[in-house]
Write a protein that binds this DNA or RNA. Structure first.
Ligand SMILES: [Mn+2]
Ligand SMILES: [Mn+2]
Ligand SMILES: [Mn+2]
Ligand SMILES: [Mn+2]
Lengths: 228, 228
DNA sequence: ATTATATTTTAGACTAGCCTAAATTTTATT
DNA sequence: AATAAAATTTAGGCTAGTCTAAAATATAAT
């Protein structure tokens, strides 16, 4: 069994690898964990003796199979709890993160399996992030950021990059939620800001910065897909 | 804000006072917390500086108003979580305690108020223990142990004294649950074991030790009560 | 009223996690 | 290739919470 602190380090390492590929540096962990590099080095030694990470001095860090399984289990719990809070307790998607940061450390297999069942085995969390299954299997998402698409493209929103409350609240206020259909009506060349419609309603403007934080899947990509 | 450890000490002190009256000794806290007296003394100094307990060297301990409020809030959370586990996640009453010991430390007012609402504001937990309200108000229970009653008395079961899984499982197996009507058919003078009926069914025997751990309220005590 | 026993506190030490400052190693730049 | 800069690790120290052993105090027994 790991301490809360160890679990948070493992999750941080997992997310850094997911975001930036292969190995991860001491400094980047320190930044993500809001600690100092010296503290990270101490913890890396400990995680190494517990066989959770591969670590050689000055060489950066990767997760072992055991470490990755551990990380995915924490992420599974985090996302299921977020889903529970939104679906059952009327939390907004910008309110769940801090509570889930605590709940993800509760140690009870039965609890998390029952929560999963209670929610009817959801595939994604309130932010569109995939929920690993009990064996640690994670569906890879093929979403892309909205800013990559062009005039007249039609997409469905599937997630967000930035998870901050302020960004999520801005999306709420703008009527931008998971599942909406977004059509790009115009792209301003100067700053790549977008004019879009949501579910074919009146158009709104969003900045390129916003578009870079909205994940979508392009609609009607396959010729033989259903046109509704 | 308190650490998990501090919260557990405060709850232990509250329960010892509740069980044994007025002040509580260093040794009794050590026993309940599975620590040594020296560790308790250290913690008492800390809780005193935080104004959570009244403490003078060698004189025993009581809770301040602030300490009692803290204790009741932790107990509120513990019991609401137990209720949630039983009512919504199909846990048995003997399975909830260890998980609730973890969940009671989750820090979120909104979470616990929403859980309360989700459960429709229950008054007692799965073991019949009263749930303090958000202001820390606790309904005093007038239940008594079944062993105090006599032949032909009719009671309703309202709670348990012993909360151990083995005792709770024994009760399950014997059909003894909260809300059942218990009639004392016979009392064996030699060992004060009881022959009882449950909801007027065929009689079973229980030991005095078991009867001392079952809480009940006597039925039809008032002459003008409803006879169903 | 002394003495003996039990309880509680203090003293000193340990681990987990964190820090700053200094030393080491790697990487980048001339 | 030599040097400068950046990244990382080590050294030493701090707090929370724990322990054992010893000292102090309170309680019980003569
Ligand atoms: Mn989150
Ligand atoms: Mn999420
Ligand atoms: Mn309990
Ligand atoms: Mn209970």
């Amino acid at each position: 069994m790991q301490s809360f602190t160890e679990e948070n380090y493992i999750k941080a390492i997992y997310k850094l690898i997911e975001a930036n590929g292969n190995t991860v540096s001491t400094n980047s962990i320190a930044e993500k964990m809001n600690t100092k590099a010296a503290s990270v080095t101490d913890m890396l030694k400990k995680l190494y003796t517990k066989k959770l990470i591969n670590y050689k001095k000055y060489q950066g860090v990767t997760l072992t199979t055991k470490g990755e399984k551990t990380a995915l289990n924490i992420i599974r719990k985090h996302r299921l709890w977020e889903m529970f809070l939104v679906e059952k307790l009327d939390f907004k998607w910008d309110e769940v993160h801090d509570v889930a940061e605590q709940l993800e450390h509760i140690d009870s297999d039965k609890l998390i399996e029952q929560i999963d069942k209670f929610l009817n085995y959801p595939k994604v969390d309130p932010h569109g992030d995939p929920i690993p299954d009990a064996k640690g299997k994670l569906n890879v998402t093929k979403s892309q950021v909205l800013s990559k698409f062009n005039k007249n493209d039609v997409c469905v929103m599937t997630g967000v990059v930035d998870h901050s409350p302020s960004f999520l609240q801005y999306l709420d206020k703008s009527g931008i939620n998971l599942g909406i259909e977004i059509q790009i009506k115009d792209v301003v060349l100067f700053d790549r800001s977008l004019q879009i419609t949501i579910n074919k309603n009146t158009a709104i403007f969003i900045s390129n910065e916003v578009a870079k934080n909205i994940l979508v899947i392009k609609k009607n990509y396959k010729k033989n897909s259903l046109k509704v």
